[in-house]
């Protein structure tokens, strides 16, 4: 009698497993400058153009990943925040568990941190305030950060620093990226760093370090610098 009972349970678990068979979808970010991979390391930074452009820091948050089919969300990674760092290859790969047999035709995610997480105090994981993506004199996450040098910059040591963020209107900086794509388990996204640099207009401005209209405008422009690799 006892054994029979356990058998039942065993089949039940097996069935559940079959129904919920999980696969992983992987989102892989690539950072390229003029179609060449961008490398940021502790050693000497490569010169990227004739103005001596060097990029020393490039990071952003990718959050609230959703897979859609016919505009309906079929898989959603709730309360998940990924800090993608051009200098750290393991951060550029995001695995999302997807129940197999679900087909999607669209990928959606936020570039940055939503306003709720921004007012939720100390948070862990990639949102830990030690990650260098949080303003301290004024509360709020930095959604996107790019720093470096270029002779185009009329600033001390020719440096530029762009820290884009802001969680309250009218300076709410969160951008939503939407890509149409064929269902596949490996999604490659290219971050076109040349295009980002062109948007910065380094000869005109060399820094943004607080929530502002400029930060909102630039975030919008930067959101167009992400593309699906076919």
């Amino acid at each position: 009698m006892q054994i029979l009972k356990y058998n039942w349970f065993f089949y039940f678990v097996l069935m559940l497993n079959y129904l919920k068979a999980q696969t992983n979808s992987t989102i892989q970010f690539y950072f390229t400058y003029n179609s060449k991979p961008l490398t940021i390391s502790d050693s000497t930074l490569p010169l990227l153009d004739s103005n001596g452009l060097q990029i020393s820091n490039l990071k952003f948050y990718c959050s609230n990943i959703q897979f859609l089919k016919n505009k309906k969300v079929i898989v959603e990674e709730k309360n998940s925040f990924h800090l993608v760092d051009a200098s750290n290859s393991s951060s550029q790969k995001i695995n999302v568990a997807i129940t197999s047999k679900l087909l999607f035709d669209e990928l959606k995610f936020n570039l940055g941190i939503d306003s709720i997480a921004n007012v939720s105090g100390a948070l862990g994981g990639d949102l830990d305030q030690t990650k260098g993506m949080y303003w301290t004199w004024q509360s709020g996450y930095i959604n996107f950060k790019i720093e470096g040098k270029s002779k185009q910059c009329n600033s001390r040591n020719n440096e530029f620093q762009f820290h884009l963020g802001g969680y309250t209107q009218p300076n709410y900086c969160l951008e939503t990226l939407i890509f149409s794509l064929a269902d596949k388990s490996l999604i490659d996204i290219n971050v076109d760093v040349k295009k980002i640099i062109d948007q910065l207009k380094l000869q005109e401005q060399t820094k943004i370090m607080s929530p502002s209209k400029d930060a909102v405008l630039l975030s919008k422009k930067i959101s167009t610098c992400f593309e699906i690799l076919k």
């Binding site: 007012v119 105090g121 100390a122 305030q129 030690t130 949080y134 301290t136 004199w137 509360s139 709020g140």
Partner: peptide, 23 residues
């Protein structure tokens, strides 16, 4: 400027005139 008690301490810790440190 600070929106939550948890993140309040970050301001004096990072302020150049107060503790001039990094979390």
């Amino acid at each position: 400027a600070v929106n939550h008690l948890d993140v309040q301490a970050l301001a004096p810790i990072h302020n150049k005139l107060e503790m001039d440190e990094n979390i």
